[in-house]
Amino acid sequence: MEPVIERMLEVQNLKKYFSVGKQLLKAIDDVSLEVKTGQSVGIVGESGSGKSTFARLVLGLLEATDGNVFFMESIAVQPMKKNNRSMTLRKYAQIVFQNPYLSLFPHLTIGANIEEPLRIHGVRDKEKRHLRAQELMYKVGVPEAYYDAFPHELSGGQQQRVAIARALALNPKLIVFDEPVSSLDVSIQAQILNLLLDLKEQYRLTYVFIAHDLAVVEYISDVIAVMYLGRFVEYAPKRFLIDQPLHPYTNVLLESVPVVGGSLKDVAGRGEIPSPLSPPSGCPFHPRCTKAFDRCRLERPEFIEVKPNHWVACHLYT
């Protein structure tokens, strides 16, 4: 019996700075997060907020500037060690990308794509791989007839199912989804999300689910973190975050979710996300915030726990 792992993923003060010319781009600036086993954590934010960078950092696909990431309590993902490819990390932590057409191997058939993780991890028995691929195709709802098809012959939804099957091949514990449904039609989005919920239950998976669409994140997550310009501005269990959002930016995101039968409202947040190269002074959200006051322009709010398990970075609550 292997020891029970409670904390699947721990992110501590993670930072990732890119130098752009002479300037410093703070893509991820001091982010901490704990993902418990079996949890589904959603990360929501606009494009340019650093979500994808975050995904790559926690999987060790990108080297962090500073901070720690631990996987399954014992594996140090960040800081990255040179030439250390932890096969445990590569086996138990998987990623599903936004565009399955780009993330599947274009020169391999669907079957070969799903079997590829097994090949990399040394499963030599062809028959075994084949059976596993068939089983996975059944699990994710891809018809067996597609085994010998190539990725470009499938629809976007089917391609994403194949990408999910490939991520499942090694019986992972953690799957990071980087905008997995945003390239799909709305009707297919729902199917994929339902599939993900089913798979999570069946395999007792832990999810980190990244999207820009709060409605999508809400559907799949237990806990939601809102990201703005490389930082978390609010973190709370789904129920609290949706019903009693504290940060004005979360409000903006909630209002921007279209409601069937509702009329289009003017969204409170003005303008676009500022350039991370020259973030605003004080609270980075203040130029777009309707509730901003003097202090917001001068002082950056701390990320604090204002209610049990409900964190927010906003001067309204300090």
Binding site: T109, A145, D148, A149, F150, E153, S155, G157, Q158, N194
Partner: peptide, 27 residues
């Protein structure tokens, strides 16, 4: 799994001339 397996098969199935063959298709 309570998902309808064929509902979003917008892509055409592997071309008909090949579905009757059992050989593996290669690149």
């Amino acid at each position: 799994i309570p998902v309808n397996k064929n509902i979003d098969s917008g892509g055409k199935p592997p071309s008909a001339e090949h579905s009757d063959k059992t050989t593996r298709r290669s690149y």
